[in-house]
C-alpha cells in the first residue's frame, strides 16, 4: 500500500525528531539542547516541505488530504474534531511555554569573550596580541628542558587546578559539581584548542574577576591566579594543558 504523502511527511519529521533524541540522548548520552533541536526541526520542516512541494503532482498529493478535510462534506465529523483539537493544542503549547516554573532562567555566557589588547598582571603591562609563551621555544631547541617544564606545569596543575578542572582536564574535578558555570573542559575541541597561549595567560592570571562585561553574568569562580602563582608557573601550566590534551595552541602567524 502506498503511504499518502502527508503521512509520509509527518512520519519523516517524527523519525528525524525522535532520531535526534535517540541518537544524542540515549546512544551518545549527551542530550541535544532543546533550543538547538527547535531550530534544527524548523529547518528540517522547511526542507521536507520543499521536497514534497518541489513538483506539482507531489504538491497536490500532499495537500489533497488537507483540502479534503476542509472541503469534503462527507468528512464533517473529522473536520469538527480536528478544528477543536488544533486550537486546544496551540493553547496547550502556549501555556507550556509561558507558565511559570521553578527552572532558573537560561543564562548565556560568552565563553570566549574578546580579549583586551593589553592586560595588567604582576605590576606589568602585557600586550595580549603579541604575548608569547617564553617556554614554547624549548619545544624545538631543547626538548629535554621542555619536558621538565611540562612536568613542572603538571605539578602546578595537580596542586592548584585539578580540584575543579579535573585530573583528566575534562572539567570534572571533585568540586566541579558545585560550580555554575562549570569549569572549562580542556579536552573539548572548542576551548584551548581554539585559543592562543596569551589568551590562556590572560584568563588564568586575572581569573573570573578579570572577565570583561561582555562575559556577563559575571559569576565565574576562577581565582585570580597571579596572586598565587608566579608568572613562570602560569606559563608552565599552559604548556602542560596543551601537552596533556594533545592540542596545539592557536597562532596567527604561519611557521
Amino acid at each position: 500500500m502506498k503511504i499518502p504523502k502527508l503521512l509520509q511527511a509527518v512520519l519523516v519529521l517524527a523519525i528525524v525528531y525522535f532520531g535526534f533524541i535517540l541518537v544524542f540522548d540515549i546512544i551518545l548520552d549527551h542530550v541535544i539542547p532543546s533550543s538547538l533541536l527547535t531550530m534544527y526541526m524548523f529547518f528540517v520542516v522547511a526542507g521536507v516541505f520543499m521536497v514534497y512541494t518541489a513538483n506539482e503532482k507531489s504538491a497536490k498529493e500532499l495537500v489533497a488530504p488537507i483540502k479534503a478535510l476542509v472541503e469534503d462534506p462527507s468528512k464533517k465529523m473529522i473536520r469538527n474534531v480536528v478544528f477543536v483539537i488544533l486550537p486546544l493544542l496551540a493553547g496547550w503549547y502556549t501555556y507550556e511555554k509561558t507558565s511559570l516554573s521553578f527552572e532558573a532562567p537560561v543564562e548565556l555566557r560568552t565563553i570566549h569573550p574578546a580579549p583586551p589588547s593589553s592586560m595588567k598582571a604582576y605590576g606589568k603591562r602585557y600586550n595580549v596580541l603579541k604575548l608569547e609563551n617564553p617556554f614554547r621555544k624549548f619545544e624545538k631547541t631543547d626538548p629535554k628542558k621542555f619536558k621538565e617544564l611540562i612536568a613542572e606545569g603538571a605539578k602546578v596543575y595537580i596542586q592548584n587546578c585539578h580540584f575543579c578542572h579535573g585530573d583528566k582536564l575534562d572539567g570534572k574535578g571533585p568540586y566541579a559539581a558545585g560550580l555554575n558555570p562549570t569549569p572549562a573542559n580542556f579536552q573539548d575541541v572548542g576551548t584551548i584548542a581554539q585559543l592562543q597561549e596569551s589568551y590562556l595567560f590572560w584568563r588564568i592570571a586575572t581569573g573570573g574577576p578579570g572577565l570583561p562585561k561582555e562575559a556577563a553574568p559575571w559569576i565565574s569562580s576562577m581565582p585570580i591566579w597571579q596572586d598565587f602563582l608566579s608568572e613562570e608557573e602560569i606559563w608552565q601550566v599552559i604548556l602542560f594543558l596543551y601537552d596533556y590534551t594533545g592540542y596545539q595552541p592557536r597562532s596567527f602567524g604561519h611557521e
Binding site: 542530550v31 539542547p33 532543546s34 533550543s35 527552572e103 532558573a104 570534572k172 566541579a176 558555570p181 562549570t182
Partner: peptide, 14 residues
C-alpha cells in the same frame, strides 16, 4: 543556549 537541566546533564557548557 542551554537550560540549567541540560547544563547539568552535559556537565558543562560544552
Amino acid at each position: 543556549v542551554l537550560t540549567n537541566e541540560e547544563l547539568k546533564a552535559l556537565g558543562g557548557p560544552y
